[in-house]
Design a protein around this nucleic acid. Structure first.
Lengths: 181, 181
DNA sequence: ATCAGCATGTAAGGCGTTACATGATTCA
DNA sequence: TGAATCATGTAACGCCTTACATGCTGAT
């Protein structure tokens, strides 16, 4: 597997569940996963063909007749081992890039209102995302009997908890700016 | 300026304050900023020379005699304008990649203990980072009279608030896993 | 004298984004 | 019939990480 290409693991994780096309994989990533990882076609298709070459996944043509054929990918034993090795490894990099905080950090180069406005934009975005996460949570709560869903559920509550912390911080930050600047 | 290279703005933001060498810039980024943005020499030096070519910064050789000469960079008016335009723009991308959550999401491929262990590693890291952030906070609280410091302070409290939310989530997640799996 | 830290870069390689290209299918 | 969505890719370009290369300075 490519040395540092995490998309490979995302794909293996998804395929562990069920066979999928590249297009399906993109859709899955664009769902709940998109809150903590992203993927694009220009990312996924090359990864799939590399992984097929190295035997982590196998192609399975869909057999629905008459229809145009789709390429379903299936995880191999080697792919499963790779996935499990990764899950068992201690190493995990959380790489966070907040342009919002960058703008705030350098806010001294402009006026207070600019900083307040930028916090407002952030707040707006967070509120919208939070609404989506809450609908995910509700949906998942109905199906928590399946073990997998517990894992999905926990990533969603992670998002909700941190986004709520963001909102709380926004309120405090606006107050602080108004008092101090 | 390069179209999407955010490091340019980081550098301009830092230089708005004071003249710095490339080495200094790296050290600044490795401080409190590293919690929401990263930079490397292989990133910073090329950016500096590009920005000099496009007139956003100017070289100023340090004049301390006898010493080996250092290259101090100074922000130009054009650079200041670029910085302010960026601060005034609504657009801000927060790009978050949590490998920890990826592992949790795909946790169903392994056992509960693996997931618990991975949450533990995350918790450990968060605790360590939180301790650093708290010392930053204490230091900054003593100098909040300077307007710039309020902005720095707010980015630090952002870190503290979210990291505390992470820890709270960790406790809940471990409990949920123990009950449900 | 030696080691850590200061200081400036370059080069290779990898990864990802974006846009482009193409065509089928389904639904209104 | 037209638009949206399904479906699979490729190509260019840009950015970043990592490692390498080099030499100075200050402290112990």
């Amino acid at each position: 597997m490519a040395k540092d290409r995490k998309i490979d693991l995302v794909i293996l994780g998804l395929l562990f569940h069920e066979d999928l096309t590249g297009y399906d994989i993109k859709k899955r990533i664009d769902g709940a996963i998109s809150f903590f990882w992203k993927g694009s076609f220009g990312n996924i298709y090359p990864a799939l063909s590399d992984m097929e070459k190295s035997g982590l996944v196998k192609k399975r043509r869909s057999e629905t007749e008459g229809r145009r054929e789709k390429i379903l990918y299936h995880i191999t034993d080697k792919g499963t081992d790779t996935l499990k090795d990764w899950l068992n490894a201690k190493q995990a990099t959380n790489d966070l890039k907040y342009e919002t905080l960058l703008k705030l950090y350098f806010g001294g180069a402009q006026d207070k209102d600019t900083a307040l406005r930028n916090i407002g934009y952030f707040e707006e975005q967070v509120r919208a995302d939070l609404a989506v996460l809450r609908t995910y949570k509700e949906t998942l709560e109905k199906v928590l009997d399946r073990k997998d869903h517990v894992y999905y559920y926990l990533t969603v509550t992670f998002g909700i908890d941190t986004y709520e912390a963001y909102l709380k911080w926004c309120r405090g930050a606006k107050k602080t700016l108004n008092i101090m600047c």
